[in-house]
């Protein structure tokens, strides 16, 4: 795009002249029309719009196959895999699930999750430059390895990171963030984008509360301050205390998708 009335004079460079003697003879006719400021060219494009378009394409593919997609995010070590293992144990008999799990290295999480009987696809992001998040094109590739017609719910365990995954839409229907009581109560305030972008939050490892000086009420208040009205599930993936409301809520979300 050019500003109106803007005239472009082609510049001839040395290497071009060598290749094409014809243009070389024109070089003397190049005029100097603008001498001062740089020429501004309007672009107005979102840097991540390629990811956004791919995410929309994924979303359409999942909807056409009647698959509900859940994106689970958290910092490393807050219990995504354990929560997912226990969740699969409880819902697999009602809802057919598959899992995509993202890590920079290793297949440890995939091995653990495969025991649930759900098909699991592991993504190691080191192939993609050790990425700190799963991007839409990576999900598209991983989804090719899953029989989408045979499942109702696809759960994506994102790379452990409270910053970057919040920025990348992967074509999911629902985003859940897990915070554990061994992290600071102020994590939601420090990483507001993640907590703003998610549809539900889990406060995990509540079985450890007797051993910690952790103010879980403050943690929940901080989550609600960043994202008023968001459902918060306080639970322990290890002991399964407080697990029932989470499973009920998740099941209802998948069912409402099924009825659409």
């Amino acid at each position: 795009m050019f500003p109106e009335g803007f005239k472009i004079i082609r510049h001839l460079h040395h290497h071009e002249s060598h290749k094409s003697p014809r243009t070389h003879t024109q070089s003397g006719t190049v005029k100097n029309v603008q001498t001062s400021d740089n020429r501004k060219i309007k672009v107005v494009r979102r840097v991540l719009d390629v990811n956004q378009q791919m995410a929309e394409r994924n979303r359409q593919m999942f909807h056409e196959n009647g698959v509900f997609v859940l994106n689970i995010m958290s910092s490393p070590g807050s219990g995504k895999t354990t929560t997912l293992e226990k969740t699969l144990e409880r819902i697999m008999s009602n809802i057919k699930c598959a899992v995509i799990v993202g890590d920079i290295c290793t297949t440890n999480d995939a091995d653990r999750l495969a025991r649930s009987g759900a098909p699991v696809v592991q993504i190691n992001t080191d192939e993609f430059g050790g990425d700190c998040h799963l991007a839409a094109h990576v999900i598209e590739k991983a989804a090719n390895g899953i029989d989408l017609e045979a499942i109702e719910c696809l759960i994506v365990e994102n790379v452990g990171n409270l910053v970057c995954p919040a920025e990348f839409d992967i074509g999911e229907d629902l985003r859940v963030v897990i915070l554990s009581v061994t992290e600071g109560e102020d994590k939601p305030l420090k990483y507001p984008l993640m907590f703003r972008e998610c549809d539900a939050a889990i406060l995990n490892k509540i079985d450890l509360l007797p051993y910690l000086d952790y103010d879980s009420e403050a943690a929940v208040q901080n989550i609600l301050q960043v994202h008023p009205g968001i459902p918060v599930f306080e639970l322990s993936a290890k002991t399964e205390e407080g697990f029932k409301p989470w499973i009920q809520w998740l099941t209802a979300q998948v069912r409402s998708n099924r009825n659409h």
């Binding site: 740089n38 020429r39 501004k40 060219i41 672009v43 107005v44």
Partner: peptide
Amino acid sequence: LDIETIEI
């Protein structure tokens, strides 16, 4: 996270 313009 938008590119507004480029300057040549």
